[in-house]
């Protein structure tokens, strides 16, 4: 199949009509009207797509707004990104500030900045060292949270769920500054109504109920009810109102 798709690079202020492209790069202020399909999309200025977006890789280091849904193999947001629809991204890395109004479904999500999801966040692996706010369910086989900001989800469920205080925040001054800018003074803690998993280890977490097979409630936790099937360890510096073996 011969590839006759065009590559577009916008560096001033411009408008582009949707379509199928090889590469789209927006360095100035660019707007794409309609649905956009491309091998690679790079937004380092201010870019906006008014329709659906489909790409192999998307990188946003400036400000990127996607009014429709987004489907991609890889997406990296180091600036500010916003998706108004649902996002299906196999590998999602967010070191900036990112917002998805719908659901985010993925295989691998890594958050070192801040992510906000209006629906559910689903992944095979979810790793966070920044902050997040998931209004629906956060579900992954492996949930690994190094509390680096204010973290919240309505519910969390998966196979193994680890929450650790004093995050392994990446040693980037810029990133540190960015995270602080957005979340100044916010305590690094996790708040949720319920956590369910097979292996659960928590620190700095406030939850109504934690249900699991093997559960460790570490320092700084406030849990109303823990229901465990096999083992439960509660740290001295943790508060558990009620615990039952089921």
């Amino acid at each position: 199949m011969s590839d006759e798709r065009r590559s577009i690079s916008m560096s001033g202020a411009g408008k582009l009509s949707g379509g199928d492209y090889a590469r789209v790069s927006i360095a100035g202020a660019g707007k794409v009207d309609g649905d956009l399909k491309a091998e690679e999309i790079r937004i380092s200025g201010a870019g906006k797509v008014s329709g659906k977006t489909e790409a192999t890789t998307i990188s946003v280091s400036g400000s990127g707004v996607f009014d429709g849904s987004v489907t991609a193999d890889e997406m990296a947001v180091s600036g500010a990104g916003r998706i108004e629809g649902d996002a299906k991204v196999k590998e999602m890395k967010c070191s900036g500030s990112f917002r998805v109004s719908g659901n985010l479904s993925s295989e691998y999500v890594k958050v070192s900045g801040h992510i906000r999801v209006g629906g559910n966040l689903e992944a095979d692996i979810f790793k966070a060292s920044g902050g997040f706010d998931v209004e629906g369910l956060l579900s992954a086989d492996k949930v690994e949270i190094h509390l680096g900001g204010k973290c919240s989800a309505r519910e969390i469920g998966g196979e193994s769920i680890h929450v650790e205080r004093g995050g392994l925040r990446e040693k980037s001054i810029l990133l540190d500054g960015l995270v602080r800018m957005f979340w100044r003074g916010a305590a690094a803690e996790l708040t949720t109504t319920s956590i369910e998993g097979d292996e659960i280890e928590l620190e700095g977490t406030t939850a109504d109920v934690v249900r699991g097979k093997r559960v460790v409630i570490g320092p700084g936790c406030h849990i109303k009810t823990v229901e465990y099937m096999e083992t439960l360890d509660v740290h001295d510096d943790a508060e558990v109102e009620k615990q039952t073996k089921v």
Partner: peptide
């Protein structure tokens, strides 16, 4: 209840959440 499903079917939380996803 979910707890009963896990017990009756002999599956884990991980499986249930994965299948839901």
């Amino acid at each position: 209840s979910k707890k009963e499903v896990l017990e009756l079917a002999g599956i884990s939380y991980g499986q249930l959440y994965r299948w839901k996803r």
